[in-house]
Design a protein around this nucleic acid. Structure first.
Length: 572
RNA sequence: CGGGGUGUAGCGUAGCUUGGUUUAGCGCGCCUGCUUUGGGAGCAGGAGGUCGGAGGUUCAAAUCCUCUCACCCCGACCA
């Protein structure tokens, strides 16, 4: 297929100055990618081969699931974004540009607007649906801080699908098909992954799942239960707060005001009063757009999860802190006692059944001891408003949960009518009535998969590609091209392997064998076929496997047979 | 956006504190020749730098000052 001497492949012995993480260092050293600018990369021929293979797996599974491929432009006119309201909402992450006539455009970070606008023009009737359209496209997000090479780039390649249906049932069917397709994709890539419940936020919708690939260097944290298999994004994970058992049950005491001068945070309060943080009621002050106040209570050792509070309140909330404070309230000394009836008090489950707690006195430099929820105050709502901690229990089966780091590789989402309503994408139902189209969107990071695969599968010698996306199946190594007999034999074997339909990289360079072996391991080709003395003397080729360095010697015919059968029994 | 750091050959770097001994050094890679050829070879020779850019100080600037650009790191709500 390819001769090394005629190919464009440059490997590097030395590392980058900025090593960051294995996948970046290796994809650079192995000649897969080159950095062009911050967060912007070129795919070199070898990397592009891998990318194409990933794309094809994604494409095959999307087609199998009934989605239809098309292609939208990467540059999008601003008016569509104004229509959806996101031109205003989207921050500096949206890469905006103007044309020569000063018209506004952006580089698409995602394509809801374009697909919804297409639906507006071309979907008129319930008879046109259900429909699921997808593309494999370049996206651009001007990230705050691009890092980890291609794992978190500003320009990246993504498959995004958008579904259109006339009823919730059809949406559910497509959603489930996409869920299954994503599982199939990740399994074909031999990646360890978790489908995880994700936040649907204020948009609502029944469900959303993220597909997380396990990797220690990942930026996403997930919670899972080894017992029952429940898994969720750290941000929205349901759990039961563990209650510290002190053995004897505490008797509720009388409340007592204590002077706590300038002790305005949990850490110093805990030290000042000599009580553990979990015995303190942390009170956070939030407000909605109309200025309504929300007091959110959580155990002092925990952190409030504003997203969960928002989901419960059904409105966007903003934290009021000492920097932004304009309420005249003694931030740092607020508490649940003696509050106006018109403020809402939300209490986290971690405070349920607690007694003799310390809380702010709503008076500068004072706290109150021995506060008992239920006796001294009653919150409007008890609920889950915090992040899980080590030792917390699974909300499904009650067993202790575990945490794992990972990389988000895919996200599927029931959009509902959010975009179709704003952008007037309506259809006529069987009764002749106009309704907004019900949508879903389904994304998977194609270029991110490349990096994540390396992150998950490599050793100190280099990359270990799974067979499904290895740039080549076989690296044919001629031990010494100056030896005419070996060179001739290698040429013959090369044409035999290529003729048998095997993807082979023929390392025909006139260099020492060691260089070829090191390079082969670095770029991670699954099977090495070595032509050397053993072939001249015994007509035997040596086969060495990248994954475990296993070696066997076979004649040419059996080598081809072995290679052809190898993928049937192995993933990598 | 806030704080910090770095820009010297394709890559990795030394030199900068204390300006002149540097014709800017070294390793990898690259080119030529000879030797070598089973896990990143050896010897010999060679090409490649406006020291990120602009201005300034000075007899003299990679080195000091100012501005600028690029890249990188850390942080960006937790009473």
């Amino acid at each position: 297929m390819v001769r090394y001497s005629e190919y464009f492949l440059t490997t590097l012995k030395e590392d980058l100055s900025n090593k960051e993480i294995a996948s970046y260092s290796l994809s650079h050293r192995a000649g897969l990618i080159r950095k062009i600018a911050s967060g912007i990369y070129a795919f070199l021929p070898l990397g592009y081969r891998v990318l194409k293979k990933i794309e094809n797996i994604v494409r095959e599974e999307m087609n199998r699931a009934g989605a239809i491929e098309m292609l939208m432009p990467a540059v999008q006119p601003a008016d569509l974004w104004v229509e959806s309201g996101r031109w205003q909402i989207y921050g500096p992450e949206l890469f905006r540009l103007k044309d020569r006539n000063d018209r506004d455009f952006c580089l698409g970070p995602t394509h809801e607007e374009l697909f919804t606008s297409l639906a507006h023009v071309d979907i008129k009737s319930y008879k046109n649906m259900p429909l699921n359209l997808y593309q494999i496209q370049v996206k651009f997000r001007d990230e705050i801080r691009p890092r980890y090479g291609i794992l978190r780039a500003r320009e990246f390649i993504m498959k995004d699908a958008y579904s259109f249906s006339s009823n919730e049932e059809d949406l559910d069917i497509i959603y489930n098909k996409m869920f299954e397709a994503y599982c199939r994709i990740l399994e074909r890539l031999s990646l360890k992954y978790f489908p995880v419940e994700a936040d649907t936020g204020l948009i609502g919708g029944k469900s959303s799942h993220e597909f997380i690939i396990l990797a220690g260097s990942g930026e996403d944290e997930l919670l899972y239960c080894p017992e029952c298999g429940y898994a969720a994004n750290y941000e929205m994970a349901k759990f039961t707060p563990s209650q510290k058992k002190n053995g004897n049950i505490e008797t509720p005491q009388e409340t007592k005001e204590v002077h706590t001068p300038s002790i305005a945070n949990i850490k110093s309060l805990s030290a000042f009063l000599n009580v553990p943080a979990e015995k303190i009621i942390k009170t956070m002050l939030l407000k909605d757009n109309d200025g309504n106040l929300f007091y959110v209570l959580v155990a002092g050792n925990r952190e409030i999860n504003i997203q969960k509070v928002q989901n419960c309140a059904g409105t966007a909330l903003e934290l009021i802190d000492s920097q932004t404070d304009d309420t005249g309230i003694a931030i740092g000394f607020i508490g649940p006692l003696g509050l106006d009836k018109n403020v809402r008090v939300y209490a986290d489950n971690s405070l349920k059944g607690s007694v003799n707690m310390v809380a702010g006195a709503n008076k500068k430099d004072y706290h109150i001891k021995n506060v008992c929820p239920g006796r001294d105050f009653n919150p409007d709502i008890w609920g889950d408003f915090s992040f899980p901690l080590d030792g917390d229990l699974c909300s499904v089966c009650g067993k202790p949960v575990k945490f794992e780091k990972g990389i988000e590789i895919g996200h599927i989402f029931k959009l509902g009518t959010k975009y179709s309503e704003k952008m007037d994408a309506m259809f006529l139902d069987s009764n002749g009535k106009l309704n907004p189209i019900i949508m879903g969107c389904y994304g998977i990071g194609v270029s991110r998969i490349l990096a994540a695969s390396i992150e998950q599968l490599h050793d100190d010698k280099g990359i270990i590609w799974p067979l499904s996306i290895a740039p080549f199946m076989v690296n044919l190594i001629a031990i010494n091209m100056e030896d005419v007999k070996i060179a001739e034999a290698a040429e013959f074997i090369y044409s035999e392997l290529a003729g048998a339909g095997i993807e082979v990289l023929f390392d025909d360079r006139n260099c020492r064998a060691g260089v070829k072996f090191k390079d082969s391991d670095l770029i991670g080709i699954p099977v090495k076929v070595v032509v050397g003395k053993n072939f001249l003397e015994n007509k035997k080729l040596e086969i060495e496997l990248r994954k475990d360095s296993g070696k066997i010697a076979l004649d040419l015919e059996n080598t081809i047979k072995f290679i052809k059968e190898y993928p049937q029994n192995n993933l990598f």
